[in-house]
Structure formats: structure tokens, C-alpha cells
Amino acid sequence: HNLTITQGKLFFHYNPKLCLSEIHKMEEVSGTKGRQERNDIALKTNGDQASCENELLKFSYIRTSFDKILLRWEPYWPPDFRDLLGFMLFYKEAPYQNVTEFDGQDACGSNSWTVVDIDPPLRSNDPKSQNHPGWLMRGLKPWTQYAIFVKTLVTFSDERRTYGAKSDIIYVQTDATNPSVPLDPISVSNSSSQIILKWKPPSDPNGNITHYLVFWERQAEDSELFELDYCLKGLKLPSRTWSPPFESEDSQKHNQSEYEDSAGECCSCPKTDSQILKELEESSFRKTFEDYLHNVVFVPRKTSSGTGAEDPRPSRKRRSLGDVGNVTVAVPTVAAFPNTSSTSVPTSPEEHRPFEKVVNKESLVISGLRHFTGYRIELQACNQDTPEERCSVAAYVSARTMPEAKADDIVGPVTHEIFENNVVHLMWQEPKEPNGLIVLYEVSYRRYGDEELHLCVSRKHFALERGCRLRGLSPGNYSVRIRATSLAGNGSWTEPTYFYVTDYLDVPSNIA
């Protein structure tokens, strides 16, 4: 807008934040220059609390790290170098490059900038070799853009010569660093050979998330399962459950009422301010606690030095998902009996873990797994792929695949051998790939016309006998059925096997 004052003059007093240069501009645009008398524009009460600059400061050096910015700028000295009290560095987070010096300023003089007072450097006698002032900004957020400017702080001049310097606002972004852990990993099994893994992005990506790394490792069953005799009275049979499938998407929606109208769909109840505040506090606490764990609990591995020492970490090797089922080394339970199943799973520490690289999504279907087997899954978020990966501390989750139908069934015939004193040795093959492992066998036998009897055969007993022995049988026709019990439950009964026990007292003698 054009402003013209045809008559009258300007009068400025007691404006401590208004620089004289701005008042002189007002004289020019209003056409009143030359009308004012000496005392109409006070030299001592206008701009006496402001830094009124008329020179431009330029930054000469900028260096960044993930949490620091090192700045240096060209030296500046007023005509009387004693008038320079120091520099004021202003900075704040700036997602967009549209910041002005006066953003967030209120009537009390406060604003949204963080201000650092910096002492002037030592003055050199040689004007050509003056030290460049600077400042190291610490405690910054990774991968965050900051708006920065600097200006001088000078003393009051009796001659009211307006001098000083100020830089333009520059924008500097800190470097990326390792992201925080992925949030809320959930693993479920939808079949006997697959596990579905879902997660949420890290709360602090500290860069642009480029991919996720998912490692999985087959877990050995508890050692007590191999040692305890679950045929003993009072000892509860062990059981394991597989990871249940995901709930429906509708039930997972946030901010939804727990109660549904019987007449149909209901609208979600909005969260109160107290609920939102509580969630923010919980989120802040979780982030602080995660940072504490990362800094205190997890110790970084030592990389190899120039002395030739090897990095103890196993090298990563990509495998196809079809090879995942046989990740671990199978060892027989008892070496003397080769027909026992290889369900003991000690994992070799030198073995390469299978892994998958996930790009542009937060889910993965891990296939080719062994049925009813526990897996430990390790999830890392990465925001750099080359020249070397920059990934987060791992988040861990466990899951067990679903049982395989008929995996616990005894394959092959049940054979028998009759000894003296009416002892019958029953023999059968253990299931080759049971659900988890076989903890015991149930032997059901009966003599024709009598009630059915049951015998429990422990895992250890089966390994020693290759089956079991029935003792003290009365003469007669017998039928026997056997079924295995694994961590997933009972298998199917075998087809009945028949044998006849004679009275050993009636056996004919070869003595003449």
C-alpha cells in the first residue's frame, strides 16, 4: 500500500525493539523526510534493546553428524571492536523451508527459537588472519532439518551509529543413524509349514526405512522333555500350542467401542483428552525405555581390526524358502538304536541362519518350516543398504507352526516275539517326523474274553527296548493296539495285532 503524509511529521519514542533503520525507511515511504526535528525521533529510546544489523554474515563451514552440527561463519568486528559482546545463534526444527525470524513471537518477546549466546573469538592483530567464530550444536535429532541463523550482539553506541551483522536463515539436516526397533511384532501360524509375521514401523526411523531383515531359527525343545518319565503317576503330560491366527481386521481397528449394538453396526467412541494424553505418555515412556535398553543392555560386537582377528559373527547367506525346513542338525536320541526319531534339535552355532529381506511392506510369510516346531524370529529395521547396512537392534518374537495331521501315527506293522515265561516283546517304529517329539506310547492289549488293559511306555523305555515287553501273560489269544502321544496330543491307534500265548508248562520236552 502507498502511504503519503502531505502535512505533519513523524514522532517515535520509547520503541526499544524498533531499529532506527526501520524508522528511516518509514520517513522515505511516507514522504516526511526532512520535516522531523532532532528530538522527534529519539536516538536513545528507539532500538536500544534490539540488534540492528546492516551487514550480512556468511557461514564459512558446515559439518553434520547424526546428532551434531558444527558451524563456522566469517569474522565480524565493528569499528570499535570492544562493542562486540558476542553472537546469538538461533535454531529450531523446520520440516519445511518457510521459516521466518519472527515465527511464534508474542507480545512478551518470546519466540519459538532456541538461542545460544556465543563469546567472540580472540581478536588477531592481523586483519587478514582473524579467527572464524563458530559453535557445535549438540543433542539434535537424527535425520531432522533445522533452520539456523546467527547475528551479532553489540553494545549501545553513544554516537548512535547503527552497526551489526546478521546471516540469512539456512537449512541444515542432520545425518541418518540406526533406527529404533520395529514396533509390535506379531507372529502367527496359518499352516503346519508357515508363519505369518506382521509389525509396525519404528517410532524413530532416523532416516528413510529402506528394508527390513527377518531372521528365523528353529528352537530346540526343553531338555526336561527328553529326561522326564511322563508315565509316572502324578506327572502331567506336557503340551505345546501353536500360535493362533490373526483376529479379523475389524476387531483390530483402534479407537473402536468394545460393545456392539445388537441391531447392527455401531460407531466408534472418540477417545477423551485424558485417554489420548495417557497414550502419549505411555508411548514416550516406551521410547525412553527402549533407548535405555539399547544403550545399557546391548553391547556392540567388536569388529575385526587390522591384526587379522576374525569377526566372530557368522556370515549372512541367503537361502531359498524351500530350504528352511531342514535348518537344524538332527541327532538321534540314543545312538545305539537307529530307529528312534531325530527330534532332539541342538543347533550348531556355526550354522548360517536363513533370512529374508523385506522391502516396502511390514509383513512376511515364512514358508518351508517344520510342522509343530518353535521358531525364534528376529526382526531388524534398516535405513541404508549400501555401502553397508545400517540397521536397528533386533526385536524378537516366537511362534510355533501348526501340527501336521497323521504325523504322530505309527507307520509300519507292530511285530512281536514270544519268549519263555510268557513274555512277549512288542516292537514298532517311532514316527519319523512327529509333531514336536514323542513323549510316550500307549499300549492297549486284551486277552479274548477279558477286559482291555493299558500300559504306558516312556520315551526312554522305548529307546532301550525298541518297544516294550509284556510279562506274566496268561495263555490265550491276544490283540494289541499302540498309539503315540506327542507334544500336540495323541496320534491314531494302530491296526490290531494278534498273537497267541501258550502255557509254557505244557511245552513238550526233548528229553527222552
Rank of each mutant, 00 (worst) to 15 (best):
A407M: 03
C267F: 14
D261G: 07
G322W: 13
G472N: 09
Y292H: 04
H416Y: 15
S248C: 15
E442K: 11
V365H: 04
Y375E: 00
Y478Q: 02
S203V: 06
V214R: 00
V359I: 12
S251E: 12
S257G: 07
E310V: 03
G449K: 07
N360K: 13
E282T: 08
S223H: 11
E356K: 14
R218A: 06
R390F: 05
R483P: 00
E265P: 05
E260C: 05
A309G: 12
L379S: 01
P434A: 05
Y448A: 13
M402R: 02
K271A: 14
S223F: 02
N422C: 06
M427H: 04
P332L: 10
E227A: 07
T303P: 14
L464V: 10
L453R: 02
S344L: 09
K317A: 11
F298V: 06
V439H: 09
A381S: 11
G207I: 03
T333D: 11
I482L: 08
G449F: 12
D229K: 05
C391M: 03
L455N: 04
E224T: 06
A220L: 11
V359D: 01
S274R: 12
S257E: 15
E221G: 15
A220C: 15
A405P: 06
G325N: 10
K406G: 13
P332R: 07
R319M: 09
Y375S: 00
N295S: 13
V296Y: 07
L277M: 15
N339H: 09
H461F: 13
N421D: 11
C269Y: 10
Y478E: 00
P354W: 10
L470G: 00
W216S: 03
P245F: 15
N510P: 11
P332M: 11
A395I: 06
R286Y: 09
A335Q: 07
V358P: 06
R483V: 01
I209Q: 11
D291S: 06
G476P: 00
V334E: 05
D408H: 01
Y259Q: 11
E265W: 13
T241G: 11
Y498P: 04
H454F: 00
S274W: 09
E404P: 02
R376K: 13
L321M: 11
V439F: 09
E433R: 13
S262R: 13
R319A: 10
F337Y: 12
V214L: 08
E389W: 13
R469Y: 10
D229H: 05
V296T: 09
N490H: 00
G234W: 06
D506W: 11
Y448W: 10
G368W: 13
E282W: 15
S315C: 10
V507N: 15
F462L: 04
L225A: 08
G207P: 04
F285S: 10
V358G: 10
L213V: 09
E404A: 03
I377H: 02
P205M: 13
R483T: 01
T415E: 01
S251V: 10
R313G: 03
A381I: 02
V331N: 10
L225C: 06
N339G: 07
L277A: 13
E389H: 12
R318S: 11
T386N: 08
E221F: 11
Y212V: 11
I418L: 08
Y230M: 05
V424I: 04
Y504M: 04
A407K: 06
E351T: 14
I482P: 00
V443R: 01
S284N: 10
G264N: 15
T343Y: 11
V411I: 06
K361W: 06
R318W: 15
N383D: 04
T307V: 08
P245Y: 13
F215R: 13
E224Q: 13
V359E: 09
K278P: 12
P349V: 03
F337P: 14
Y396D: 01
N206W: 11
C391Y: 15
N383I: 07
F298A: 15
S367G: 09
D506A: 10
W242G: 13
S243Y: 06
T401K: 00
A405D: 11
P205D: 15
R466Q: 04
L321E: 10
P496Y: 13
V296K: 14
H254E: 04
L369I: 02
N255H: 05
S304F: 15
R469A: 03
L505H: 08
Q252R: 09
V327L: 11
K271F: 12
N490M: 05
D273Y: 09
S257H: 05
T415V: 14
P403Y: 08
C267G: 03
S315D: 08
E465R: 04
E404H: 13
D450W: 09
T494K: 02
E290A: 14
E351R: 06
T494W: 01
I377N: 01
F246I: 10
V501E: 01
E495R: 09
G489L: 05
V334K: 15
Y504C: 04
Q380R: 04
V480W: 05
N255V: 07
E247S: 12
F337Q: 11
I276M: 07
T210Y: 06
Q252N: 03
E442A: 05
Y504V: 12
L453F: 07
S342G: 04
